[in-house]
Design a protein around this nucleic acid. Sequence first.
DNA 1: ATTTTTTGTGCAATCGATTGTTTTTCTAAA
DNA 2: TTTAGAAAAACAATCGATTGCACAAAAAAT
Lengths: 341, 341
Amino acid sequence: MGKKSSIYDIAQKLGITASTVSRALRDHSNISEEVKKRVNEVARELNYKRNAIAVNLKQGSTRTIGVVIPQLNRHFFSSAINGIEEVASEAGYNVIICQTRNDVRQEKKAVQMLSESVVDGFIISVVTDVSDYSHFRNLQDQGIPVIFFDRYPMSDEFKRVSIDDFLASSQAVTHLAAAGRTKIFHFAGDQSVSIWHERTRGYVSAMKQLGITVKPDWIFKDTLNLEAGMQAVERMILSNNIPDAIFSSSDHPLLGALSAFKKHGFRIPKDIAMVGYGNEIFSPFTEPPMSTVDQHSYEMGKLAFTNLLKCMEGAASEVPKQSVLPHELVIRGSSFLPDKP
Amino acid sequence: MGKKSSIYDIAQKLGITASTVSRALRDHSNISEEVKKRVNEVARELNYKRNAIAVNLKQGSTRTIGVVIPQLNRHFFSSAINGIEEVASEAGYNVIICQTRNDVRQEKKAVQMLSESVVDGFIISVVTDVSDYSHFRNLQDQGIPVIFFDRYPMSDEFKRVSIDDFLASSQAVTHLAAAGRTKIFHFAGDQSVSIWHERTRGYVSAMKQLGITVKPDWIFKDTLNLEAGMQAVERMILSNNIPDAIFSSSDHPLLGALSAFKKHGFRIPKDIAMVGYGNEIFSPFTEPPMSTVDQHSYEMGKLAFTNLLKCMEGAASEVPKQSVLPHELVIRGSSFLPDKP
DNA sequence: ATTTTTTGTGCAATCGATTGTTTTTCTAAA
DNA sequence: TTTAGAAAAACAATCGATTGCACAAAAAAT
C-alpha cells in the first residue's frame, strides 16, 4: 500500500536496469520476450503505473489539448466538445476542458496555466468582452498552436473555424420577411464578440436589402439569456412597441420572450413569428417549436481538432486562416403558419 | 523565437546558477534583492514561463483535480461543475473535466490517464452500466482520494455526496397522490445506477404507503432521454394504458412525454399530472411548467470539492462516508391545478 | 577457427525545477 | 589583525522515464 512504484523498483526486483524495464514495458524490439514477460509480471504485481508527468517532461509533449470555452451549459458547446473528443481520442489525444464563465481574467488564467507545458495545443472560444489578445499572442510567441471556433478574436492573426454567421442571419431574416413580416425586431449580443457582431450585421444588411428601415428601438442589445428575453418583451409592451417578428442571436432569450409574449396573450407565430440561433435541446419542444439556425456544432468541434492536429504536427501551412462550415436554417412552428386556418 | 526558455537560460545569461535563479523567482529570502531584480528582468526579457510539468514531477503534486462525469449536456452536471470550480479556484486548484459519455471503457480510460500522476484527486459521477469497480479500487490502492457525487458506486467502500433520492422520490409521489392521482406511472432509469435505483425504490415505497398497487406495466425502464419519453407515451396509447400522473426519474424523458401527450390531445395537468427530476433549464418553460426535484447541484459540487480537499490534505477521517444534502420539490403547473376551473 | 553481424542490456545524460548541503563572500565583533 | 557568524550563491542530488551509445554474448558468415 501507499508509495507508487517506479521502473526502478521493477528493475531492482529483477536485477536489471531501469532502461531495460522501460523498453520492455514499451514493447521495444530490442528486448527479449523472456524479459518482457517477467517485467510485465512484476509490474502487475507491484501495481505499477507509468508516471505521465515524467514522460511528458522527457518528451516535451503531453498529447493533451486544452479546450477553453465561456460556458458548458450551452448545447452548442457541449456538443462541440463531443465532436472534439471524438476525433481527439482517435488520434490518441486527451482533452482538458476549462470554463471561463465569460470572465476575461479566468480566460487568461486558464490559458496561462494550461500553457505552462500542460497542453500541446488549444481550441478556444473567446469570452464575451474580450478586447485584449495579449494572452493569445503569447501562445503564438511560444509556438503553441491555437484554433479558435465560434467566438473568435476579431483580428486576422489567428486561425478559426466557424459558420457564416452573416449569411445565416440574413437568411433567417429573409425567411421571416417571406412569411409576410416587416416589423422584425432583433435580439443582439455584445458587439465586441465576433459572432454576435456578424449576426447583427446580417440582420441589418438583410433588412436593408428588403427595403425595411430598422428603427433603433427594434434592436435589443443585451446579455443573451432567458431573463434578458423576458425583460425585453416587458419593455416592448410598456412602450407599446410590438413587433410582428423577432430574429434572435440566441435561442435562450427567445425562449424567455416566447414565454413572456404568451403570458400576455400574444399568439405565436400568428401575432409574432420567431427565429432563434443555436438549436438548443429545448428548441424543438417549445410551443410552438422554435425555428432556429443550427450551427452543426458537432462537426465544428471535429474540424477544429482536425485543424489543430495539423498545426501540432507542423503542417500549419495546410490549415487555412478561416474554415467556414455549412449551417442550416431549421424552420419550425414559431415562424411557419400551418395551411389550415 | 521558438524554444521555450528555462531557468538555465536565465542563469547563463547572468552568469549565476540555476538554483539561484529558481530561488530568486520564488522570492526566497536567501537571495539578495539585487539578484532578484536582475533575474526577473531577464525572465521577462526571455519570455520565461515556469514549466509546470517539471514542477509537478519534482513536487509530486499538481494541484489539479479530475472531474469525471457521464455527460456535459445536463444542467445538473454543468451546474455542479460550476460549484466545484468555484471552491477549487479559491483553494488554488485547477479542474480538469473528462466526459465518459456513459461508456465504462471511457470511464476506465479517463481515470487511468488522469491518475497517471496528472491529478491529486478525483470527483466522479459514475457511468450508467458500471458493475465493475476495479479502476476505482485501483485509485484507493494508490492513495489517490476520490469523492463520488450523484451517481455513486453501490458499495460502501467509497465516499460520496448526494441528496436523499429515496426521500425526494417518495415526496414527489406523495405530492401527486395529494393532488388526487392514483394511477401514477414511473419512468425509471437503469437500476444498476445507484440514484435511479433509489428513485424507483422511493416511488415503489411511497405507492405502497399510499395503498396503491403498482402494476408492472406502470414502470418504464429505459434510457432517460427525450426519445424514450416520447416512445413510452406511444406505447401507453397503443396499449390503451393511460396514467393520471407520471413521476419521472429525469426531466428529459418527461419533456418527451409532455410533448407526445399534448400531441395526442391530452391536457396537462388536468388529464395527466407530472413531476420530473433535475430542474433542467427548460423545465420552468415547458407548458405547463414542469414540477421537478431540484438537486441543488451547485451546492453539491461545492461540497464535493470541500470534502475532496480535506482528503487530499490528509484529513480524510473528518469526511463522512456519505454526505447528504437537502433537496427541494419544486411544484409548478404540471402537477398543480389552478383554483379557477 | 576467425570475423562479422545480430541481439539483448547496461551506462549515463537528459528533460526543468527544487532543495538540502556545502562553499564562498562579506560584515562585524574580538 | 584575526575570526566568528551571517548572508549569498554554488554544488549536487532528486523526481521517473526515455534514448543514443557502448558493449557483451550469441549467432551467422567466411
